[in-house]
Design a protein around this nucleic acid. Structure first.
Lengths: 139, 139
DNA sequence: GTCATTATGACAACATATTGTCAATATGTA
DNA sequence: TACATATTGACAATATGTTGTCATAATGAC
């Protein structure tokens, strides 16, 4: 059963990336870049690249490339980090905040539609299982 | 909450790919290629490339490239499809079967360790939620 | 303070995945 | 059958992600 869950996570991940790409197309983003915005919004505003990568379960290099591109297009800004000379803090620009809020407005009805018919307590249980699995594989 | 589930699925997918890459390294495979073997094993032995792609929630072109590479390394074989002149049937070669069984032997203890401490009925509920989400996004 | 170890950004090579296009093959409908 | 439509493989461009290496900065042990 655990293996079935793993396979379904792979499959869902692919399907959800496709969904996210559609939702973000209008604003010139992608699922991958949206996830970076989400990670930053989930934190207290700014994180270093390695912190974002850890929170996303990805390599720091892949996130670095995304943030560099998004900084180049004015969605993110690099801020000096008082605690570290090399590791800049990544934060949303004004433009980034606007785009993120736009996406949230599109995402809410999408999530409601997608979650329709799913039992809330079942979803809570599913979430707790996913969280435990993440803990198990996080370094 | 639905959004949290989505973000955790993305994160877990990344972590699980890394796990799979470690497990498959010895036999010269990768998570991506292992998933193709798994899809074939789950079916009745042979499927066309588009069928595999659909079952994996991915584009047929990405799967085509994987199967071409795996056919080249002797893990898969293309068989004539009596129902279709262009769309060959993809099947595991003897070598592919051996490797897949090897991987299963490595995967079983891994899954048991990873699932340790997870409540079985919770896992069933989680699986049902994932299945419903897949149905929602499958074309 | 010194020195070994670790963390970080830059860069590159490669694997994986999506999208798009085109020609050949199927399929469904009149 | 004939024809419009859909499916499929081949090919290419691009985005995403991992791994590896190197130089610089930070950290911890002494």
């Amino acid at each position: 059963m655990f293996t079935d869950i793993v396979l379904d996570i792979f499959k869902l991940s692919g399907l959800l990336v496709a969904e996210g790409d559609v939702l973000t197309k209008d604003v010139g983003l992608s699922s991958a870049r949206w996830k970076v915005l989400g990670a930053l919004a989930h934190s207290d505003g700014s994180m270093t690249v390695p912190q974002i990568a850890y929170s996303m379960g990805q390599s720091r290099q892949s996130v670095q490339r995304l943030t560099d591109a998004m900084e180049g297009s004015g969605i993110l800004v690099y801020q000096d980090n008082p605690h570290h000379k090399k590791a800049k803090l990544v934060a949303l620009s004004e433009k980034g905040k606007e785009i993120f809020e736009l996406l949230e407005q599109k995402q809410i009805p999408w999530a409601n539609l997608a979650a329709d018919g799913l039992n809330a307590s079942d979803m809570e249980i599913a979430l707790s299982v996913l969280r435990k699995m993440i803990q198990r594989f996080e370094t």
